[in-house]
Structure formats: C-alpha cells, structure tokens
Nucleic acid binder design. Structure first.
Lengths: 190, 190
DNA sequence: TCGTATTGTTGGACGCCGACCAACAATCAC
DNA sequence: GTGATTGTTGGTCGGCGTCCAACAATACGA
C-alpha cells in the first residue's frame, strides 16, 4: 500500500491519530488564502495544524493534492463502480451527483485568491487524466479500439472537469453539476 | 520574457552559446535510457553535455519539459494559427502533420525504458491542457458557451494526445498521425 | 588597438519538497 | 504490569528550480 490511508475504520489499538486529512486541509486553506499557495510551505501548514512536518505525509501525498482530496475520493469510488460493470456515462453522472460542493469547488473558486495560477491548471488536468484512465478500460470492454476508447474517455473526463470548473466559479450551490455535465456531454459527444 | 528563448535568430554580438536545447535533449535521452529518468539529475545531464548546471535553465524550463520541446513548439505554432483565425479542426490537423516523428514520440515510445511512469502521464496531460487552452478561445469565438467551448476543446486535445500516443507506440513512422487524429475525432466528436 | 557594450556561462547559495529512518509516545490486549 | 501495535517526531538526505554576482567571449566604435 503506497497510498495514503484515510482510515475511516476505527482502529482500536495503537497510538491515536493526532491529525486528519481534513484538519490539514483546513489549515492549508487558511494559509493559502492569507499568504498564497506558493508562499505557504508544508511546515507552515503542519505548524498551524499543531503537528510535525513529517506527519503531513501520513495524510497527504503532496502539497498539491491537498485541495483535491474529496475529488480523488470520488475517483476511487468511480473506479469501483466501473469495475462492477456500471455504464460509463451513468457512473460519471453519479460521480458528479455525489461531489461535495464546498470542498472540491474550493480550488477553482478560490484559485485566484490563493494565487494558485498554473498549479491549478496542472492539478485539474491531472484529475482529468485520472478520470480518463478510469473510464478507458470500461470503454475498451465495450468493444472500442484503444485509440477510440482513450479519446472518448478523455472527452468524457474533459466534460466533467469543465463542468466542475463552471459549477465552482458560478458558486458551488447555485447550479446543478449534473445538469452542467449533461450539457457538456451532449454538446461534445453528441 | 519569462519564457526560455530558443533563438534561431543569429545574434552577432555577445558571447556565443555553449549549449542548445537539442544538445541537452540528446544528453538527457542517453542518460534516461541508461539509468532511468528519476535517477538522472539535472547535473548529470549538463555534465554529459559539457556545460554547467546553471546553463540548463537557460534552455529548458524544467527537467520534465526536456522530452517535449518539439511538441511545445508545435503548440506555439498552433496558437499563432488560431490567432490568425484558422479553423480549429484544421489547425489541429496541421499541428499533427507537422509533428516531427522521432523527437515527440520519444517520450511515449521509450517511456518504459526510461522508467518515466507517472511522470509521462503528467507531462502528456499537461500538453493536453496546453492544446485545450489554445483551442478554447477559438471555439468561444465561434459562439460556444464557455462550458461547451472548454469541453469540446478538451475533447479535441484529448483526441490529439491519444493519437500521438498510439502513433508513438506503433513506431513513429509506421502510421499516419493525421489519419489517427481523424479517426479519433470522428469517433468522439462525430 | 583598445576600451565598451552585449550576451552567456559559471559557481555558489538558497528555500523547499518529498523520501527515509530510528527513536519515542500512546493506546489496546492479555 | 508486559508486550504488541500504531502514530508521531525530528533529523538527514538528494534533488529541483531560483537567484545573483563574478567572469568570459564576442562585436562594435573610436
């Protein structure tokens, strides 16, 4: 398990955790808004969270993943659904429906205030790749050639991220993400 | 000019250059194949190229951009064409047609041998974002809403990169990139 | 021929990230 | 109590990318 374990399972033995992903996320958000992303070091974050720097990497893979934890959780769930044979378009809509408004939208919505800049573009497109690569095998299983499967998967993923961005910028609760996704998919994949 | 200048213009004054982007690229390729990407430091590259480490950043923005210089050039050209009002689909095909086989395909083709792994995924999807963001304004100018423009631009860009990957893996010269691109676009954007 | 402006290179320093590890601390089970 | 388990801590380490002042090599004008 190289992955960072976000144990919701209650452990009953061993030293209790002193931090959590959420705690670090909150501390980071504050600091990003105060000083900007680039000017905030990992040490700054852990310091505010009241924990040591080493502990940070027990909960977060990288500083750049901090604002995307919920989204990444959703992608894990997406993979699971697809592995169970779910329909691609439907699984995507479920992902969109289950996306918590505040957290995921943060990066896009506050991106300006946090001085994310290029970092935001990269983080977002990385998630696009994650979604695309989750969808691709399912489309392949549907009989598509590798090129076509990958292309269509990329298109779906692109629609999702464009929708999430639009949704975030419009103010997370004010529009329906699924509706935006539907519109985007209709307009590009027909 | 924050950008790294690849001056083809003959300068007639001042100290002559001791290196070039191509020189560094070649040195890097050798080392990546020998020891792998992660095990090759910037200092290793410049050392083989017979130049100091500082000089590296006069020619390359980052180690991760080394293998993508030609592609990035093509994206610059793409932006120029679109700014001149070229048609989106056509401009993309021109990009594909002009892409030099050996250099761009390197990352995909030798990715395994170089131990690129995740680095390759990230670098590739970063270029997807570059192309997408180049296409988006042109689609917007065509009257599309921001959401739709971005989605369709992403789909086009995804098709391009899927095609490039397929093209590279098949052996750069053995297939026609434009044909692959056409197929991908036909299958996803209709 | 000799400065002088221009353009590049060099080496060193810096802050930071992310990996790693051994020592230590806090909990549970017996 | 004792031991096992699970986390935290502080430290070190290599590497990246930034910055800068000093230096080197060229062209040009007087």
């Amino acid at each position: 398990m190289g992955a960072v374990t976000q144990g919701t399972e209650r452990r009953r033995v061993g030293r209790p955790r002193a931090a959590s992903r959420d705690l670090l996320e909150e501390a980071a958000c504050e600091l990003f808004l105060e000083r900007g992303y680039a000017a905030t070091s990992v040490a700054d974050i852990t310091s505010r969270a009241g924990v040591s720097r080493s502990t940070f990497f027990n909960y977060v893979e990288a500083k750049s993943d901090l604002l995307w934890a919920r989204f990444d959780d959703a992608v894990v769930a997406l993979r699971a659904r697809l592995a169970d044979g779910a329909d691609v378009a439907e699984a995507l809509r479920e992902l969109a429906a289950g996306l918590p408004a505040e957290n995921v939208a943060m990066a896009f919505a506050q991106g300006e205030a946090m001085g994310l800049g290029e970092e935001l573009r990269l983080a977002a497109v990385r998630r696009l790749a994650d979604v695309r690569d989750a969808l691709t095998p399912a489309l392949r299983a549907g009989g598509a050639t590798p090129l076509v499967a990958r292309s269509r998967a990329g298109a779906y993923a692109g629609c999702l991220l464009a929708a999430v961005q639009e949704w975030s910028l419009a103010g997370a609760g004010r529009t329906d993400l699924v509706a935006l996704l539907d519109e985007a998919v209709r307009a590009t994949l027909g």
